[in-house]
Design a protein around this nucleic acid. Structure first.
Lengths: 144, 144
DNA sequence: ATGCAAATCTGCACGAATTGCAGATCAGGG
DNA sequence: CCCTGATCTGCAATTCGTGCAGATTTGCAT
């Protein structure tokens, strides 16, 4: 991986950044330091960093929204391989005390377990993790 | 709210549906039962149900992705008002036993606290919850 | 039954976020 | 200093949703 001024700038902007910036936001800041830098380059670099595990993505736009007619207080387990979701019931987490929330007013808590569902780990136990797409159909939807 | 065949069909498709379907998925299934139904109507109806609290949205496409250079094992608190994110440290949840996961292989766990940050609850304590947009700038990014 | 206004449905254009491509440039080993 | 593969940039294309305007339909009031 070559060292280019664009990358140096982005690394600098990200280092220690606790603001959870978006690609557009970084592009804006980066542009003020280096007019002409391409938004495409920002996306490119961010993707590279994520691939290298040096950066995390929050609330991935995993394609489209999913809907759940189950309005009970529950959580989900998402398969990294097929994208399927399974319901998971945990106790009432809103009562569990949490430190470091300071004045943040908690209204709800959502937990998501990331991993591999039974179907996927069975489909190819010998192969490395499949990439999101291996579908396990189910009435125009996903299940895990 | 009027009763139309389109809505009856969608209600039927959603009732007890544990597959966490996407709008497109429901549209596909709905189309096979009622050729000609509009994708726009599916979105419309889903939005209405969500507004009525009869349906939940999973992993909302909150506009764009956010990046976090902090690769430590941590979680987030998201402000429903300004969209800001704050880091929250919890213990190693991957060790906590969870029931109902059956053969699901847990690789990581992510927790998100939904609520209102200090800034927002201070900005207008007398007003009802603001809608996502009230920004609390911070170097081309968000913080809570 | 019949009339009607308001609520809906549909098709299509538009908007936001992100990626695919192709050609121009640049980093850096030999 | 040269050369080749890695990068950068601009633009087109995609995907998921929403805004709109006109054609229909529902359901209360006759």
């Amino acid at each position: 991986m070559k060292i280019t001024p664009q990358r140096q700038l982005l690394f600098r902007l990200l280092h220690g950044n606790l603001g959870h910036p978006s690609a557009e936001g970084l592009f804006a800041t980066a542009s003020s330091h280096m007019p002409g830098i391409s938004l495409r380059t920002v996306y490119q670099t961010l993707n590279d960093l994520v691939a290298m595990g040096e950066l995390r993505v929050i609330n991935f736009t995993t394609g489209s929204n999913r809907f759940d007619p189950n309005t009970d207080d529950h959580h989900h387990a998402e398969c990294m391989s097929c994208g399927g979701l399974r319901d998971v019931y945990l106790g009432d987490l809103d009562q569990v005390p949490v430190q470091g929330l300071d004045g943040f007013q908690r209204h709800a808590t959502s937990v998501v377990f990331h991993g591999v569902c039974i179907d996927c780990s069975t489909d190819a136990p010998h192969l490395g993790p499949t990439h999101p797409a291996t579908t396990h159909p189910s009435q125009g939807s996903h299940t895990t």
